[in-house]
């Protein structure tokens, strides 16, 4: 861990305890300027907690939040120049789109003309001009999301935080919005933290992924690093759909094999029986019964499958884990 005051956002040994419950356990994480880091994990893993600590909405029980080397811990949420897009968007329902964007500036005493100029510019950027007089209730889910985004960007924040910003949108819209969101948010000067429980979204949005579970950081790295070189069994099984196969092949060691790394062959080590076949167009997923339990195998859609295939794999794709702790073991 570097102690030098670097550019970007740095979390040091960040903790959050409520009563007896440890919501976040000594998180160390660095987000470079312009970098987008996705906080990924199941619900209750501490990812939203982390975001609220960075924003200053909840007090940390320990640790520091540094921005460009400057400690933010003593600053209130209004003084951190943090913008946040909430899962519910949190638009003020009694104000128009313009009113939603302008309230923060107005309260800070910005002159009306300058305020209007900034609002107009942001509305243009997000192509929301025609909706400026509408109330949130009169907007579609996607439009609300863009207004929330506009409100966040308008303030020229030093940190951008997004808390499951797309989870209220349907899958198709989510996929459509992803590139736009990336265009608007990432690659500027600010560090971006993006909370999601959807690995597709994390891979699509982020430069790096920080995977959390039960308040602890499991691994942080590029999607490729996490996928090919998981630090433990949790990382291996959380990332990748269909999920990794875990085989108790040897006592004291558990073998993880990705579904795409298992091959049907005549001389494979494991005998199996075909249970079901899911045809996905670009691939097919085979569910096979074996002495190690049900296995998932991804193959090309045209691959012929014998009723009693045998499975083989390459040594380089083996991932070994400790069956108790789940820790990664050397091959």
């Amino acid at each position: 861990m570097s102690t030098a005051s670097g550019a970007g956002l740095e979390l040091r040994q960040l903790c959050r305890e409520v009563g007896e419950r440890l919501l976040l356990d000594r998180l160390d994480l660095h987000v470079a300027p312009g970098e987008c880091v996705a906080l990924l994990g199941p619900s209750g893993c501490g990812k939203s907690t982390t975001l609220r600590l960075v924003a200053g909405l909840d007090p940390a029980s320990g640790g520091q939040v540094l921005l460009d080397g400057e400690d933010l811990s003593e600053r209130g949420p209004g003084e951190r120049q943090v913008a946040m897009v909430f899962q519910s968007y949190a638009l003020y329902p009694h104000l128009s789109v313009e009113g939603n964007l302008g309230l923060g500036l107005k309260v800070r005493g910005m002159a009306a003309r300058e305020r209007q100029r900034r609002i107009d510019a942001t509305l243009d950027l997000l192509q929301l001009g025609e909706l400026r007089h509408r109330r949130p209730a009169q907007l579609s889910g996607g439009q609300r999301q863009r207004v929330a985004l506009a409100r966040a960007l308008l303030r020229e924040p030093r940190i951008v935080l997004l808390d499951e910003p797309m989870s209220n949108l349907d899958a198709q819209l989510r996929e459509e919005l992803r590139p736009e969101l990336r265009r608007l948010l990432c690659g500027r000067e600010q560090p971006v933290m993006y909370v999601t429980h959807d690995q597709q979204e994390a891979v699509g949005m982020a430069d790096r992924i920080a995977l959390l579970e039960a308040g602890r950081l499991q691994q942080v790295g590029s999607p490729r690093e996490l996928y090919t070189n998981p630090a433990n069994r949790f990382v291996a099984s959380f990332l990748g759909r269909p999920a990794i196969n875990l085989l108790a092949l040897e006592p004291g060691r558990q073998l993880g094999l990705r579904p795409e790394h298992l091959h049907l062959s005549e001389d494979g080590a494991v005998a199996a029986r075909l249970l079901r076949r899911e045809w996905w167009g670009h691939q097919q997923l085979l569910w096979l019964d074996s002495q190690w339990g049900t296995l998932r195998v991804l193959t090309a859609p045209e691959t012929p499958t014998p009723r009693e295939p045998r499975l083989s794999w390459q040594r380089q794709h083996e991932l070994w884990f400790d069956p108790q702790s789940g820790a990664r073991l050397a091959p």
């Binding site: 949420p77 209004g78 951190r80 913008a83 909430f86 519910s88 949190a90 003020y92 409100r151």
Partner: peptide
Amino acid sequence: PGELEDAARLEGLDLGQRLQHV
């Protein structure tokens, strides 16, 4: 919804302003 007030806090509204405006 609690996130409404959170959003207002992030925009720098103090307690009185949050009550008055939101």
